[in-house]
């Protein structure tokens, strides 16, 4: 039947879109990054010098790699207790109740707020609070960025962890209760051990989100092209340096920024792959 053949052909052709797209993305990034890698070699990754002055141009990504890793890990550290207790609240203590559903929707709301709104809010509402603590002069820096980043990734870690915690069989928990364990003991000796790899994966996937977040970080990190010297020191992440400098870049600088994009692509792909792998093994 010809209708059948046309339909099948159309479906197949459309599936090529993503194939070509993926190939195109990788090729374009590689092609764009090539001049920078040719010029600087491995030094592009290991050096933290970022000097766009004409004549003595030199670009290294280390400061931004460090900025990205530090802010994301710090965000994850802040996120873990929040997401962990919220997922226990939703999937264990109040599982199946109205309270749990309300909390779940509130957390989902957090996931829906655009990154730029987080950045703006952080800039005008959170930053003054941090300045008021006296820990920082301007309120810009790694810590501010990480704090907002943590709030942004909490919903991802929470919803996945909650789902995994709620999958722990009731009969296992009941077996522990029937031996006299308290709820906390059941959580630590049965629930968490059974859900461990899933919970870890949910935090890895949240980390993957944090690594690529752009706007909020760009508005809060202070935009200094150096390895951050402290918790309240300014820095730049891979995403934020691209956001800040791509517009006025050309030539070697543009290639350097694309190369940073390529590195970011690889890092996030790796982290996401790891998270998905653990989830698949778990299920």
């Amino acid at each position: 039947m010809s209708g059948d053949r046309v339909t099948k052909a159309l479906l197949f052709i459309s599936s090529l879109t993503i194939l070509l797209l993926s190939a195109g993305i990788v090729i374009s990034l590689l092609g764009g990054a090539l001049p920078a890698f040719k010029e600087f070699g491995v030094r592009f990754i290991t050096s933290s010098v970022w000097n766009p002055t004409e004549g003595s141009e030199e670009y290294g990504a280390m400061a931004f790699i460090a900025g990205t890793v530090i802010t994301s890990i710090l965000a994850l550290i802040i996120c873990i207790p929040m997401a962990f207790s919220t997922s226990l609240f939703i999937a264990e203590y109040y599982n199946g109740t109205r309270t749990s559903r309300i909390l779940r929707s509130l957390v989902d709301l957090l996931a829906g707020i655009p990154s730029i709104v987080y950045g703006f809010w952080g800039f005008y509402a959170l930053r003054p609070l941090l300045v008021a603590t006296g820990l920082t002069d301007q309120g810009f820096g790694v810590f501010t960025a990480s704090l907002v980043l943590a709030i942004m990734i909490v919903p991802y870690a929470t919803s996945l962890s909650a789902e995994i915690i709620s999958m722990v069989p009731a009969e296992l928990k009941e077996a522990a209760y029937s031996l006299g364990a308290t709820r906390r003991e059941v959580i630590f000796s049965v629930v968490i051990p059974s859900a461990r790899s899933g919970i870890i994966a949910s935090f890895i996937l949240a980390l993957g989100r944090a690594l690529g977040e752009t706007m909020a970080v760009t508005m809060l990190i202070g935009n200094a092209n150096v390895i951050p010297k402290g918790l309240f020191a300014p820095g730049n992440t891979m995403a934020s340096v691209i956001a800040n400098q791509f517009g006025e870049a050309s030539g070697l600088k543009m290639s350097a920024l694309i190369a940073i994009g390529l590195l970011l692509f690889l890092i996030t792909a790796l982290v996401n792959y790891l998270g998905k792998l653990i989830i698949k093994r778990f299920a």
Binding site: A176, L179, A181
Partner: peptide
């Protein structure tokens, strides 16, 4: 629950514990 033990319909040994640990689970849990 220390005085009243329970055995369930479907066998439910703790999958994260060894046989030995399962037997003494009552002690470790408490």
């Amino acid at each position: 629950r220390r005085k009243v033990g329970m055995v369930f319909q479907r066998p439910n040994p703790f999958p994260n514990m060894t046989i030995y640990e399962n037997v003494v689970a009552g002690f470790s849990l408490n």
